[in-house]
Amino acid sequence: MPSGTKSLHFLLSALLTAISAALLGFAMSTNWSKTTMDCTGIGTNNGSAAITMGLFEGLLVRESCPSFGSQSEFLVFAELSSITKTPIILHGLCVCLLALCLLCSVLSILISFYNSVSNPYETFMGPIGVYVCSSTSACLSLLVLIIFALNITVTTMAEELVPSIETIASVLLTNKTSQMQVGYFLVIPYMVLSLGAILLIYLYEHTAYTHRREQERPTEDAPKEIMMY
Rank of each mutant, 00 (worst) to 15 (best):
I146F: 09
Y121A: 15
Y131K: 07
V117F: 13
Y131T: 07
S116F: 01
V106N: 11
P127V: 06
S134E: 02
V130T: 05
L142N: 12
S134Q: 02
L142Q: 09
G126F: 00
P127C: 11
S118C: 14
G126A: 04
L110V: 15
V106C: 11
E122Q: 15
T123E: 07
T136G: 13
N119K: 15
S135W: 06
M125G: 09
S135T: 10
S118M: 14
I111P: 03
I109V: 10
I147S: 03
S116C: 05
N119P: 11
V132L: 10
L110T: 14
L145Q: 07
G126D: 01
I128P: 04
S118H: 15
A138L: 02
S112V: 04
L145C: 08
P127W: 06
S134I: 00
S134D: 02
S141C: 10
L107D: 10
G129T: 01
P127I: 06
V106Q: 09
S137V: 10
L145R: 07
S108R: 06
M125N: 10
V132W: 06
S118I: 13
G126Y: 01
I109H: 01
C139K: 13
F124R: 09
L107T: 14
I128S: 05
I128Q: 05
T123R: 09
P127M: 09
I146E: 10
S141T: 13
P120D: 01
N115F: 04
V144G: 03
G126I: 00
S118E: 14
M125A: 12
I128T: 12
S141Y: 06
V117I: 14
P120V: 01
I146M: 10
L143W: 10
V117K: 15
V132Q: 07
L145I: 08
P120G: 02
C139H: 11
L110H: 11
P120I: 00
I111W: 02
L142K: 08
N119R: 15
T123G: 14
L143Y: 09
S116Q: 04
V130L: 04
